[in-house]
Design a protein around this nucleic acid. Sequence first.
RNA 1: GCGGGCGUAGCUCAGUGGUAGAGCGCCACCUUGCCAAGGUGGAUGUCGUGAGUUCGAAUCUCAUCGCCCGCUCCA
Length: 528
Amino acid sequence: MANKDVTDPARMEKIVSLCKRRGFIFQAGELYGGLNGCWDYGPLGAELKRNLKDFWWRKTVQERDDVLGMDGSILTHQDVLKASGHVDSFNDPMSECPLTKARLRADQVPAAGPGTEVTFLGAKDEESGKTTDKSFTVLIPEGKQEPERSAEKFAIQFYRELLGKGSKPVLDPAARESRPGPREGALYNPENGVMLSEPRSFDLMLSTKLGALALDNDPKAIAYLRPETAQSIFCQYKNILDSNRVKLPFGIAQVGKSFRNEINPRNFTFRSREFEQMEIEYFCHPDDGLRLTDEWLEARLAFYEEIGIPREKLHILDIPDGERAFYSQKTYDIEYEFPFGIQELEGVAYRTDYDLGVHQKGAGKPLEYFDEETKTKFLPHVVEPSAGCDRTVLALICEAFDEETLTDDKGKDDVRTVMRFKPSMAPIKVGIFPMLKKNEEQVAIAKDIQKSLQKWMTVFYDDGGALGRRYRRQDEVGTPYCITVDFDTLGENGEELKNTVTVRDRDSMEQERMKIDALLPWLLERVR
RNA sequence: GCGGGCGUAGCUCAGUGGUAGAGCGCCACCUUGCCAAGGUGGAUGUCGUGAGUUCGAAUCUCAUCGCCCGCUCCA
Protein backbone atom coordinates (compact mmCIF):
# COMPACT_ATOMS: atom_id res chain seq x y z
CA MET A 1 0.00 0.00 0.00
CA ALA A 2 1.39 3.37 -0.93
CA ASN A 3 1.70 5.52 2.12
CA LYS A 4 1.18 9.10 1.07
CA ASP A 5 2.89 10.43 4.18
CA VAL A 6 6.32 9.37 3.05
CA THR A 7 6.35 11.03 -0.37
CA ASP A 8 8.95 13.71 -1.01
CA PRO A 9 8.51 15.21 -4.49
CA ALA A 10 11.25 17.80 -3.95
CA ARG A 11 13.79 15.07 -3.24
CA MET A 12 12.66 13.14 -6.29
CA GLU A 13 13.07 16.22 -8.48
CA LYS A 14 16.63 16.67 -7.29
CA ILE A 15 17.36 13.03 -8.02
CA VAL A 16 15.93 13.22 -11.54
CA SER A 17 17.90 16.39 -12.14
CA LEU A 18 21.15 14.87 -10.91
CA CYS A 19 20.57 11.81 -13.07
CA LYS A 20 20.42 13.99 -16.14
CA ARG A 21 23.14 16.43 -15.14
CA ARG A 22 25.68 13.76 -14.38
CA GLY A 23 24.73 11.26 -17.07
CA PHE A 24 22.92 8.51 -15.24
CA ILE A 25 19.56 8.55 -17.02
CA PHE A 26 18.12 10.54 -19.92
CA GLN A 27 14.74 10.50 -21.47
CA ALA A 28 14.64 8.40 -24.63
CA GLY A 29 14.10 10.38 -27.81
CA GLU A 30 14.57 13.65 -25.97
CA LEU A 31 16.02 15.31 -29.04
CA TYR A 32 12.68 14.83 -30.77
CA GLY A 33 10.49 15.74 -27.84
CA GLY A 34 10.68 12.52 -25.88
CA LEU A 35 9.15 9.09 -26.07
CA ASN A 36 6.69 8.44 -23.28
CA GLY A 37 7.66 5.69 -20.89
CA CYS A 38 11.12 5.04 -22.35
CA TRP A 39 14.50 5.93 -20.89
CA ASP A 40 18.16 5.77 -21.88
CA TYR A 41 20.97 5.08 -19.44
CA GLY A 42 23.97 7.36 -19.85
CA PRO A 43 27.57 6.40 -19.11
CA LEU A 44 27.24 6.28 -15.33
CA GLY A 45 23.77 4.75 -15.35
CA ALA A 46 24.95 2.01 -17.67
CA GLU A 47 27.80 1.14 -15.28
CA LEU A 48 25.46 1.14 -12.31
CA LYS A 49 22.91 -1.06 -14.00
CA ARG A 50 25.61 -3.43 -15.21
CA ASN A 51 27.00 -3.71 -11.67
CA LEU A 52 23.56 -4.65 -10.40
CA LYS A 53 22.87 -7.20 -13.13
CA ASP A 54 26.33 -8.75 -12.85
CA PHE A 55 26.00 -9.06 -9.09
CA TRP A 56 22.54 -10.59 -9.37
CA TRP A 57 23.79 -13.09 -11.94
CA ARG A 58 26.79 -14.00 -9.83
CA LYS A 59 24.73 -14.49 -6.68
CA THR A 60 21.81 -16.21 -8.36
CA VAL A 61 23.41 -18.35 -11.00
CA GLN A 62 27.16 -18.62 -10.63
CA GLU A 63 27.42 -19.00 -6.88
CA ARG A 64 24.59 -21.54 -6.66
CA ASP A 65 24.65 -25.05 -7.98
CA ASP A 66 20.88 -25.36 -8.32
CA VAL A 67 20.19 -22.47 -10.71
CA LEU A 68 21.01 -22.33 -14.41
CA GLY A 69 20.97 -19.27 -16.60
CA MET A 70 19.36 -18.61 -19.94
CA ASP A 71 18.84 -15.71 -22.31
CA GLY A 72 15.61 -15.97 -24.25
CA SER A 73 14.31 -14.28 -27.34
CA ILE A 74 12.32 -11.09 -26.91
CA LEU A 75 10.11 -11.81 -29.91
CA THR A 76 7.58 -14.33 -28.77
CA HIS A 77 5.42 -16.84 -30.61
CA GLN A 78 1.82 -15.73 -30.26
CA ASP A 79 0.71 -19.21 -29.20
CA VAL A 80 2.97 -19.01 -26.15
CA LEU A 81 1.13 -15.96 -24.94
CA LYS A 82 -2.23 -17.34 -25.89
CA ALA A 83 -1.54 -20.39 -23.73
CA SER A 84 -0.24 -18.28 -20.86
CA GLY A 85 -3.40 -16.20 -20.92
CA HIS A 86 -1.67 -12.94 -21.81
CA VAL A 87 -3.34 -12.44 -25.18
CA ASP A 88 -6.81 -12.60 -23.68
CA SER A 89 -6.25 -10.75 -20.46
CA PHE A 90 -4.16 -8.06 -22.13
CA ASN A 91 -6.96 -7.29 -24.53
CA ASP A 92 -9.93 -6.69 -22.27
CA PRO A 93 -12.45 -4.58 -24.13
CA MET A 94 -13.26 -1.64 -21.90
CA SER A 95 -16.20 0.74 -22.02
CA GLU A 96 -16.23 4.17 -20.50
CA CYS A 97 -19.03 6.13 -18.85
CA PRO A 98 -19.05 9.56 -20.55
CA LEU A 99 -20.46 11.15 -17.41
CA THR A 100 -18.37 9.73 -14.56
CA LYS A 101 -15.41 8.58 -16.68
CA ALA A 102 -15.64 5.22 -14.95
CA ARG A 103 -14.06 2.51 -17.06
CA LEU A 104 -15.71 -0.88 -17.01
CA ARG A 105 -14.83 -4.21 -18.53
CA ALA A 106 -17.37 -4.60 -21.33
CA ASP A 107 -17.84 -8.31 -20.71
CA GLN A 108 -18.68 -7.71 -17.07
CA VAL A 109 -21.28 -4.98 -17.40
CA PRO A 110 -24.59 -6.40 -16.12
CA ALA A 111 -27.59 -6.30 -18.45
CA ALA A 112 -29.83 -3.29 -17.89
CA GLY A 113 -33.50 -3.66 -16.93
CA PRO A 114 -36.33 -2.22 -19.03
CA GLY A 115 -36.92 1.54 -19.10
CA THR A 116 -37.02 4.61 -21.28
CA GLU A 117 -33.92 5.43 -23.29
CA VAL A 118 -33.45 9.13 -24.05
CA THR A 119 -30.83 10.39 -26.50
CA PHE A 120 -29.81 14.05 -26.71
CA LEU A 121 -28.14 15.12 -29.93
CA GLY A 122 -26.35 18.18 -28.64
CA ALA A 123 -26.55 21.33 -26.54
CA LYS A 124 -25.79 25.02 -26.62
CA ASP A 125 -24.12 27.10 -23.93
CA GLU A 126 -26.34 30.02 -22.99
CA GLU A 127 -23.34 32.03 -21.75
CA SER A 128 -20.83 31.74 -24.59
CA GLY A 129 -23.06 30.58 -27.44
CA LYS A 130 -20.77 27.59 -27.94
CA THR A 131 -22.52 24.50 -29.27
CA THR A 132 -21.77 20.81 -29.37
CA ASP A 133 -23.34 18.04 -31.40
CA LYS A 134 -22.00 15.28 -29.21
CA SER A 135 -24.80 12.92 -28.35
CA PHE A 136 -25.60 11.60 -24.92
CA THR A 137 -27.84 8.67 -24.08
CA VAL A 138 -29.24 7.55 -20.79
CA LEU A 139 -31.62 4.76 -19.81
CA ILE A 140 -34.15 5.72 -17.13
CA PRO A 141 -35.45 2.64 -15.38
CA GLU A 142 -39.10 1.70 -15.55
CA GLY A 143 -41.28 3.07 -12.78
CA LYS A 144 -39.46 6.38 -12.48
CA GLN A 145 -41.76 9.41 -12.72
CA GLU A 146 -41.15 11.78 -15.66
CA PRO A 147 -38.26 9.86 -17.21
CA GLU A 148 -37.46 12.71 -19.61
CA ARG A 149 -36.91 15.11 -16.72
CA SER A 150 -34.48 12.71 -15.04
CA ALA A 151 -32.68 12.20 -18.32
CA GLU A 152 -32.34 15.99 -18.76
CA LYS A 153 -30.62 16.30 -15.41
CA PHE A 154 -27.97 13.79 -16.48
CA ALA A 155 -27.65 15.45 -19.88
CA ILE A 156 -27.16 18.93 -18.44
CA GLN A 157 -24.51 17.58 -16.10
CA PHE A 158 -22.78 15.93 -19.06
CA TYR A 159 -22.89 18.99 -21.32
CA ARG A 160 -21.81 21.33 -18.55
CA GLU A 161 -18.70 19.23 -18.16
CA LEU A 162 -18.20 19.19 -21.92
CA LEU A 163 -18.72 22.92 -22.55
CA GLY A 164 -16.51 23.99 -19.69
CA LYS A 165 -16.71 25.46 -16.26
CA GLY A 166 -19.46 28.00 -15.68
CA SER A 167 -21.34 27.05 -18.83
CA LYS A 168 -25.13 26.84 -18.84
CA PRO A 169 -26.09 24.19 -21.36
CA VAL A 170 -29.50 24.44 -22.97
CA LEU A 171 -31.07 21.35 -24.54
CA ASP A 172 -32.95 21.67 -27.77
CA PRO A 173 -36.29 19.86 -27.29
CA ALA A 174 -36.28 18.94 -30.99
CA ALA A 175 -32.85 17.35 -30.82
CA ARG A 176 -33.77 14.40 -28.71
CA GLU A 177 -35.23 10.95 -29.11
CA SER A 178 -37.11 8.81 -26.63
CA ARG A 179 -37.81 5.14 -26.99
CA PRO A 180 -38.25 2.04 -24.88
CA GLY A 181 -34.95 0.48 -23.84
CA PRO A 182 -32.56 -1.12 -23.38
CA ARG A 183 -31.39 -1.42 -26.94
CA GLU A 184 -29.86 -4.64 -28.16
CA GLY A 185 -26.08 -4.58 -27.83
CA ALA A 186 -25.87 -1.31 -25.91
CA LEU A 187 -24.14 -1.18 -22.51
CA TYR A 188 -25.30 1.02 -19.66
CA ASN A 189 -23.48 2.09 -16.53
CA PRO A 190 -25.20 0.16 -13.72
CA GLU A 191 -24.60 3.13 -11.41
CA ASN A 192 -26.53 5.75 -13.36
CA GLY A 193 -27.95 4.22 -16.55
CA VAL A 194 -25.74 6.29 -18.83
CA MET A 195 -24.93 4.52 -22.08
CA LEU A 196 -21.29 3.51 -22.20
CA SER A 197 -18.91 4.16 -25.06
CA GLU A 198 -18.25 1.45 -27.64
CA PRO A 199 -16.00 -1.18 -26.08
CA ARG A 200 -12.41 -0.50 -27.02
CA SER A 201 -9.69 -2.98 -26.51
CA PHE A 202 -6.68 -1.75 -24.63
CA ASP A 203 -3.77 -3.55 -26.15
CA LEU A 204 -1.37 -3.87 -23.29
CA MET A 205 1.17 -5.96 -25.16
CA LEU A 206 3.43 -4.60 -27.85
CA SER A 207 3.36 -6.54 -31.05
CA THR A 208 5.11 -6.62 -34.38
CA LYS A 209 4.90 -8.59 -37.57
CA LEU A 210 7.42 -11.15 -38.62
CA GLY A 211 8.46 -11.63 -42.22
CA ALA A 212 9.52 -8.99 -44.66
CA LEU A 213 6.14 -8.98 -46.34
CA ALA A 214 3.66 -8.57 -43.53
CA LEU A 215 0.93 -8.89 -46.11
CA ASP A 216 -2.78 -8.57 -45.69
CA ASN A 217 -2.55 -8.21 -41.95
CA ASP A 218 -2.09 -11.93 -41.74
CA PRO A 219 -2.88 -12.64 -38.09
CA LYS A 220 -0.35 -15.48 -38.09
CA ALA A 221 2.46 -13.01 -38.72
CA ILE A 222 1.88 -11.31 -35.39
CA ALA A 223 4.58 -11.81 -32.81
CA TYR A 224 4.67 -10.15 -29.43
CA LEU A 225 7.46 -8.45 -27.60
CA ARG A 226 7.47 -10.49 -24.42
CA PRO A 227 5.57 -8.92 -21.53
CA GLU A 228 7.72 -10.89 -19.06
CA THR A 229 10.84 -13.00 -19.28
CA ALA A 230 9.14 -15.89 -17.48
CA GLN A 231 7.42 -17.46 -20.47
CA SER A 232 10.61 -18.31 -22.32
CA ILE A 233 11.82 -20.07 -19.18
CA PHE A 234 8.67 -22.17 -18.97
CA CYS A 235 8.88 -22.97 -22.66
CA GLN A 236 12.52 -24.04 -22.43
CA TYR A 237 12.20 -25.80 -19.10
CA LYS A 238 12.09 -29.22 -20.74
CA ASN A 239 15.08 -28.57 -22.99
CA ILE A 240 17.14 -27.34 -20.07
CA LEU A 241 16.09 -30.28 -17.94
CA ASP A 242 17.02 -32.73 -20.70
CA SER A 243 20.32 -31.11 -21.65
CA ASN A 244 21.79 -30.39 -18.24
CA ARG A 245 21.31 -33.49 -16.08
CA VAL A 246 19.56 -31.55 -13.33
CA LYS A 247 17.17 -32.80 -10.69
CA LEU A 248 14.40 -31.08 -8.84
CA PRO A 249 14.52 -28.71 -7.18
CA PHE A 250 16.33 -26.42 -9.58
CA GLY A 251 15.88 -22.97 -11.02
CA ILE A 252 16.31 -21.18 -14.31
CA ALA A 253 17.30 -17.54 -14.18
CA GLN A 254 17.12 -14.83 -16.77
CA VAL A 255 17.90 -11.15 -17.05
CA GLY A 256 16.36 -9.30 -19.92
CA LYS A 257 14.06 -6.76 -21.43
CA SER A 258 10.29 -6.99 -21.35
CA PHE A 259 7.67 -4.69 -22.79
CA ARG A 260 4.24 -3.54 -21.73
CA ASN A 261 2.12 -0.88 -23.28
CA GLU A 262 1.52 0.82 -19.96
CA ILE A 263 -1.48 3.10 -20.04
CA ASN A 264 0.19 5.58 -17.80
CA PRO A 265 3.98 5.50 -17.38
CA ARG A 266 4.87 7.32 -14.18
CA ASN A 267 7.51 8.13 -11.63
CA PHE A 268 10.66 8.48 -13.71
CA THR A 269 11.89 5.04 -14.73
CA PHE A 270 9.68 3.24 -12.22
CA ARG A 271 6.90 2.40 -14.63
CA SER A 272 8.27 2.19 -18.15
CA ARG A 273 7.06 0.60 -21.33
CA GLU A 274 10.40 -1.07 -21.88
CA PHE A 275 11.99 -2.49 -18.78
CA GLU A 276 14.43 -5.11 -17.65
CA GLN A 277 13.60 -7.99 -15.36
CA MET A 278 15.74 -10.32 -13.28
CA GLU A 279 13.68 -13.46 -12.90
CA ILE A 280 14.08 -16.92 -11.44
CA GLU A 281 11.67 -19.76 -11.99
CA TYR A 282 12.45 -22.30 -9.33
CA PHE A 283 10.98 -25.72 -10.11
CA CYS A 284 10.17 -28.06 -7.26
CA HIS A 285 8.05 -30.86 -5.92
CA PRO A 286 4.51 -29.73 -5.04
CA ASP A 287 5.13 -30.49 -1.37
CA ASP A 288 8.01 -28.00 -1.18
CA GLY A 289 6.43 -24.98 -2.87
CA LEU A 290 5.29 -23.05 0.16
CA ARG A 291 8.47 -23.64 2.14
CA LEU A 292 10.66 -22.62 -0.81
CA THR A 293 8.63 -19.45 -1.32
CA ASP A 294 9.56 -18.38 2.19
CA GLU A 295 13.19 -19.37 1.67
CA TRP A 296 13.40 -17.37 -1.53
CA LEU A 297 11.90 -14.36 0.17
CA GLU A 298 14.68 -14.48 2.74
CA ALA A 299 17.34 -14.96 0.07
CA ARG A 300 16.03 -11.99 -1.85
CA LEU A 301 15.93 -9.76 1.21
CA ALA A 302 19.54 -10.67 1.93
CA PHE A 303 20.38 -9.68 -1.64
CA TYR A 304 18.92 -6.21 -1.22
CA GLU A 305 20.86 -5.76 1.99
CA GLU A 306 24.05 -6.69 0.13
CA ILE A 307 23.58 -4.10 -2.58
CA GLY A 308 22.96 -1.37 -0.04
CA ILE A 309 19.21 -1.22 0.40
CA PRO A 310 18.64 -1.46 4.12
CA ARG A 311 16.10 -3.89 5.47
CA GLU A 312 14.15 -1.14 7.25
CA LYS A 313 13.43 0.60 3.94
CA LEU A 314 11.83 -2.55 2.57
CA HIS A 315 8.27 -3.60 3.21
CA ILE A 316 7.01 -7.10 2.75
CA LEU A 317 3.46 -7.54 1.64
CA ASP A 318 1.91 -10.94 2.13
CA ILE A 319 -0.80 -10.70 -0.50
CA PRO A 320 -4.01 -11.97 1.08
CA ASP A 321 -6.43 -14.51 -0.36
CA GLY A 322 -8.58 -13.01 -3.05
CA GLU A 323 -6.01 -10.40 -4.09
CA ARG A 324 -3.49 -12.83 -5.51
CA ALA A 325 -3.59 -14.04 -9.09
CA PHE A 326 -5.98 -16.97 -9.15
CA TYR A 327 -3.24 -19.55 -9.74
CA SER A 328 -0.99 -18.35 -6.94
CA GLN A 329 -1.03 -19.99 -3.54
CA LYS A 330 1.29 -17.46 -1.95
CA THR A 331 2.68 -14.12 -3.09
CA TYR A 332 4.99 -11.71 -1.35
CA ASP A 333 5.66 -8.25 -2.68
CA ILE A 334 8.93 -6.68 -1.67
CA GLU A 335 8.44 -2.92 -1.62
CA TYR A 336 10.85 -0.04 -1.18
CA GLU A 337 10.28 3.43 0.23
CA PHE A 338 10.78 5.53 -2.88
CA PRO A 339 10.47 9.31 -2.54
CA PHE A 340 7.20 9.00 -4.50
CA GLY A 341 5.79 6.35 -2.18
CA ILE A 342 6.22 2.76 -1.16
CA GLN A 343 6.33 0.76 -4.35
CA GLU A 344 7.08 -2.77 -5.50
CA LEU A 345 10.60 -3.86 -6.36
CA GLU A 346 10.04 -7.57 -6.60
CA GLY A 347 7.34 -10.20 -6.34
CA VAL A 348 8.01 -13.66 -4.93
CA ALA A 349 5.12 -15.78 -6.11
CA TYR A 350 4.32 -19.43 -5.67
CA ARG A 351 2.66 -20.14 -9.02
CA THR A 352 1.96 -23.85 -8.46
CA ASP A 353 1.94 -25.86 -11.71
CA TYR A 354 -0.16 -23.29 -13.51
CA ASP A 355 2.46 -22.24 -16.07
CA LEU A 356 3.75 -25.67 -17.02
CA GLY A 357 0.14 -26.83 -17.03
CA VAL A 358 -1.04 -24.28 -19.56
CA HIS A 359 1.93 -24.90 -21.83
CA GLN A 360 1.55 -28.65 -21.61
CA LYS A 361 -2.01 -28.21 -22.68
CA GLY A 362 -1.34 -25.42 -25.19
CA ALA A 363 1.50 -27.22 -26.96
CA GLY A 364 0.04 -30.67 -26.47
CA LYS A 365 3.38 -32.00 -25.27
CA PRO A 366 4.11 -33.59 -21.90
CA LEU A 367 6.17 -31.49 -19.52
CA GLU A 368 6.08 -33.83 -16.55
CA TYR A 369 9.07 -34.71 -14.45
CA PHE A 370 9.91 -38.30 -13.63
CA ASP A 371 11.27 -38.70 -10.15
CA GLU A 372 13.72 -41.63 -10.08
CA GLU A 373 13.53 -42.10 -6.33
CA THR A 374 9.80 -42.34 -5.93
CA LYS A 375 9.16 -43.56 -9.47
CA THR A 376 6.43 -40.98 -9.83
CA LYS A 377 5.59 -38.59 -12.61
CA PHE A 378 4.27 -35.12 -11.87
CA LEU A 379 4.19 -31.58 -13.13
CA PRO A 380 6.70 -29.52 -11.13
CA HIS A 381 5.48 -26.53 -9.17
CA VAL A 382 7.28 -23.25 -9.48
CA VAL A 383 8.35 -20.42 -7.20
CA GLU A 384 9.05 -17.18 -9.02
CA PRO A 385 11.21 -14.41 -7.53
CA SER A 386 10.80 -11.70 -10.16
CA ALA A 387 12.70 -8.45 -9.65
CA GLY A 388 12.49 -5.24 -11.60
CA CYS A 389 15.99 -4.31 -12.67
CA ASP A 390 15.34 -0.68 -13.56
CA ARG A 391 13.30 -0.29 -10.41
CA THR A 392 16.17 -1.60 -8.36
CA VAL A 393 18.58 0.75 -10.11
CA LEU A 394 16.21 3.57 -9.24
CA ALA A 395 16.07 2.36 -5.65
CA LEU A 396 19.87 2.31 -5.51
CA ILE A 397 19.96 5.89 -6.78
CA CYS A 398 17.25 7.07 -4.38
CA GLU A 399 18.88 5.31 -1.46
CA ALA A 400 22.33 6.68 -2.31
CA PHE A 401 21.27 10.30 -2.74
CA ASP A 402 22.27 12.47 0.20
CA GLU A 403 22.74 16.14 0.86
CA GLU A 404 25.12 16.72 3.72
CA THR A 405 25.50 20.11 5.35
CA LEU A 406 29.12 20.91 6.15
CA THR A 407 30.26 23.82 8.27
CA ASP A 408 33.66 25.24 7.41
CA ASP A 409 36.25 26.89 9.71
CA LYS A 410 34.56 30.25 9.35
CA GLY A 411 31.22 28.77 10.37
CA LYS A 412 29.80 28.94 6.88
CA ASP A 413 27.43 26.22 5.76
CA ASP A 414 27.93 24.33 2.55
CA VAL A 415 25.84 21.54 1.09
CA ARG A 416 27.70 18.49 -0.19
CA THR A 417 25.76 16.23 -2.54
CA VAL A 418 26.92 12.64 -2.14
CA MET A 419 25.73 9.47 -3.78
CA ARG A 420 26.44 6.93 -1.09
CA PHE A 421 26.46 3.83 -3.29
CA LYS A 422 27.86 0.64 -1.88
CA PRO A 423 31.34 0.53 -3.46
CA SER A 424 30.41 -2.67 -5.30
CA MET A 425 27.56 -0.83 -7.06
CA ALA A 426 29.33 2.50 -7.65
CA PRO A 427 29.74 3.32 -11.36
CA ILE A 428 33.26 4.66 -10.78
CA LYS A 429 35.39 3.03 -8.10
CA VAL A 430 38.33 5.39 -7.95
CA GLY A 431 39.12 8.95 -8.93
CA ILE A 432 42.79 9.61 -9.66
CA PHE A 433 44.20 13.14 -9.46
CA PRO A 434 47.55 14.81 -9.70
CA MET A 435 47.54 17.62 -7.20
CA LEU A 436 48.83 20.06 -9.77
CA LYS A 437 48.16 19.68 -13.45
CA LYS A 438 51.31 21.64 -14.24
CA ASN A 439 53.56 19.22 -12.43
CA GLU A 440 54.65 16.72 -15.06
CA GLU A 441 55.97 14.19 -12.58
CA GLN A 442 52.69 14.12 -10.67
CA VAL A 443 50.73 13.76 -13.88
CA ALA A 444 52.92 10.90 -15.07
CA ILE A 445 52.56 8.99 -11.80
CA ALA A 446 48.80 9.57 -11.68
CA LYS A 447 48.46 8.26 -15.22
CA ASP A 448 50.53 5.20 -14.35
CA ILE A 449 48.24 4.49 -11.43
CA GLN A 450 45.24 4.90 -13.70
CA LYS A 451 46.70 2.42 -16.17
CA SER A 452 47.46 -0.18 -13.54
CA LEU A 453 44.07 0.03 -11.85
CA GLN A 454 41.75 0.22 -14.84
CA LYS A 455 42.28 -3.41 -15.72
CA TRP A 456 40.54 -4.24 -12.48
CA MET A 457 37.97 -1.56 -11.91
CA THR A 458 36.41 1.59 -13.35
CA VAL A 459 38.60 4.61 -12.70
CA PHE A 460 38.36 8.27 -13.57
CA TYR A 461 41.32 10.55 -14.13
CA ASP A 462 40.81 14.26 -13.50
CA ASP A 463 43.25 17.12 -13.39
CA GLY A 464 40.90 20.03 -13.84
CA GLY A 465 40.29 22.74 -11.27
CA ALA A 466 40.93 22.85 -7.55
CA LEU A 467 41.45 19.54 -5.83
CA GLY A 468 38.52 20.06 -3.48
CA ARG A 469 36.28 20.61 -6.44
CA ARG A 470 37.44 17.37 -8.01
CA TYR A 471 36.61 15.51 -4.80
CA ARG A 472 33.13 16.99 -4.75
CA ARG A 473 32.53 16.11 -8.37
CA GLN A 474 33.26 12.50 -7.55
CA ASP A 475 31.05 12.65 -4.45
CA GLU A 476 28.16 13.60 -6.66
CA VAL A 477 28.49 10.45 -8.73
CA GLY A 478 29.24 8.23 -5.76
CA THR A 479 32.91 7.37 -6.33
CA PRO A 480 33.97 5.75 -3.05
CA TYR A 481 37.70 6.54 -3.20
CA CYS A 482 39.92 9.26 -4.64
CA ILE A 483 43.68 8.96 -4.99
CA THR A 484 45.84 12.08 -5.05
CA VAL A 485 49.43 12.25 -6.20
CA ASP A 486 51.16 15.15 -4.45
CA PHE A 487 54.63 16.50 -3.64
CA ASP A 488 55.13 13.86 -0.97
CA THR A 489 54.71 11.23 -3.67
CA LEU A 490 57.70 12.72 -5.46
CA GLY A 491 59.82 12.43 -2.33
CA GLU A 492 60.09 16.17 -1.71
CA ASN A 493 59.27 15.76 1.96
CA GLY A 494 61.41 12.82 2.81
CA GLU A 495 62.22 9.36 1.56
CA GLU A 496 59.65 7.61 3.73
CA LEU A 497 56.79 9.42 1.97
CA LYS A 498 58.16 8.79 -1.51
CA ASN A 499 55.82 6.68 -3.68
CA THR A 500 52.94 7.15 -1.33
CA VAL A 501 49.62 8.75 -2.23
CA THR A 502 46.59 9.87 -0.31
CA VAL A 503 43.36 7.88 -0.52
CA ARG A 504 40.34 9.93 0.36
CA ASP A 505 37.15 8.28 1.56
CA ARG A 506 33.88 9.51 0.10
CA ASP A 507 31.75 9.15 3.20
CA SER A 508 34.10 10.30 5.95
CA MET A 509 36.10 12.66 3.69
CA GLU A 510 39.14 11.44 5.59
CA GLN A 511 42.47 10.65 4.00
CA GLU A 512 44.92 7.89 4.45
CA ARG A 513 48.47 7.69 3.08
CA MET A 514 49.59 4.52 1.48
CA LYS A 515 52.20 3.09 -0.82
CA ILE A 516 51.28 3.02 -4.49
CA ASP A 517 52.06 -0.71 -4.53
CA ALA A 518 49.51 -1.33 -1.81
CA LEU A 519 46.65 0.34 -3.69
CA LEU A 520 45.41 -2.52 -5.82
CA PRO A 521 44.90 -5.16 -3.11
CA TRP A 522 43.51 -2.53 -0.73
CA LEU A 523 40.97 -1.38 -3.29
CA LEU A 524 40.02 -4.80 -4.57
CA GLU A 525 39.06 -5.80 -1.08
CA ARG A 526 36.71 -2.84 -0.84
CA VAL A 527 35.13 -2.23 -4.22
CA ARG A 528 33.99 -5.69 -5.28
C1' G B 1 -7.62 7.24 -20.95
C1' C B 2 -9.82 11.65 -17.76
C1' G B 3 -9.02 16.32 -14.81
C1' G B 4 -5.45 20.08 -13.08
C1' G B 5 -0.45 22.30 -13.42
C1' C B 6 3.92 22.96 -16.36
C1' G B 7 7.56 23.19 -20.78
C1' U B 8 12.82 29.55 -21.90
C1' A B 9 20.93 27.77 -21.94
C1' G B 10 23.63 21.45 -19.29
C1' C B 11 20.80 22.55 -14.32
C1' U B 12 17.46 26.00 -11.40
C1' C B 13 14.52 29.73 -13.02
C1' A B 14 13.18 35.35 -14.38
C1' G B 15 10.99 37.49 -18.53
C1' U B 16 2.52 38.76 -20.20
C1' G B 17 2.58 41.60 -27.38
C1' G B 18 8.07 45.32 -29.37
C1' U B 19 16.35 43.71 -29.72
C1' A B 20 16.25 36.38 -25.52
C1' G B 21 18.24 37.10 -19.61
C1' A B 22 20.44 35.73 -14.47
C1' G B 23 22.81 32.35 -11.07
C1' C B 24 25.26 27.90 -11.04
C1' G B 25 27.68 24.55 -14.35
C1' C B 26 30.86 23.91 -18.83
C1' C B 27 35.52 25.22 -22.00
C1' A B 28 40.44 27.96 -22.35
C1' C B 29 44.32 30.57 -19.94
C1' C B 30 46.19 32.56 -15.29
C1' U B 31 46.06 31.66 -9.98
C1' U B 32 45.77 27.71 -6.41
C1' G B 33 50.12 22.85 -1.36
C1' C B 34 43.65 18.75 0.26
C1' C B 35 37.47 19.61 0.24
C1' A B 36 32.89 23.31 -4.90
C1' A B 37 33.91 30.20 -3.25
C1' G B 38 40.14 34.12 -7.02
C1' G B 39 41.04 36.61 -12.07
C1' U B 40 40.40 37.11 -17.47
C1' G B 41 38.16 35.47 -21.74
C1' G B 42 34.58 32.09 -24.24
C1' A B 43 30.68 28.69 -26.13
C1' U B 44 25.61 27.34 -25.62
C1' G B 45 18.94 28.58 -27.16
C1' U B 46 14.42 27.53 -34.04
C1' C B 47 11.77 30.06 -25.94
C1' G B 48 9.13 21.61 -26.57
C1' U B 49 6.96 21.06 -31.81
C1' G B 50 3.36 22.64 -35.63
C1' A B 51 -0.38 25.84 -37.23
C1' G B 52 -3.34 30.35 -36.39
C1' U B 53 -4.35 35.71 -34.76
C1' U B 54 -1.17 40.19 -35.28
C1' C B 55 2.69 45.18 -38.53
C1' G B 56 5.13 42.23 -34.76
C1' A B 57 4.34 36.11 -30.57
C1' A B 58 8.64 33.20 -25.51
C1' U B 59 4.05 36.07 -24.28
C1' C B 60 -2.69 35.36 -27.16
C1' U B 61 -5.64 30.84 -29.64
C1' C B 62 -5.77 25.72 -31.32
C1' A B 63 -3.44 21.13 -32.05
C1' U B 64 0.45 17.89 -30.84
C1' C B 65 4.61 15.79 -27.92
C1' G B 66 6.68 15.45 -23.13
C1' C B 67 6.99 16.18 -17.65
C1' C B 68 4.55 16.63 -12.66
C1' C B 69 0.08 15.91 -9.39
C1' G B 70 -4.74 13.49 -8.68
C1' C B 71 -8.06 9.69 -10.72
C1' U B 72 -8.03 5.18 -13.70
C1' C B 73 -5.23 0.85 -14.96
C1' C B 74 -1.46 -2.57 -13.37
C1' A B 75 -2.87 -10.17 -16.15
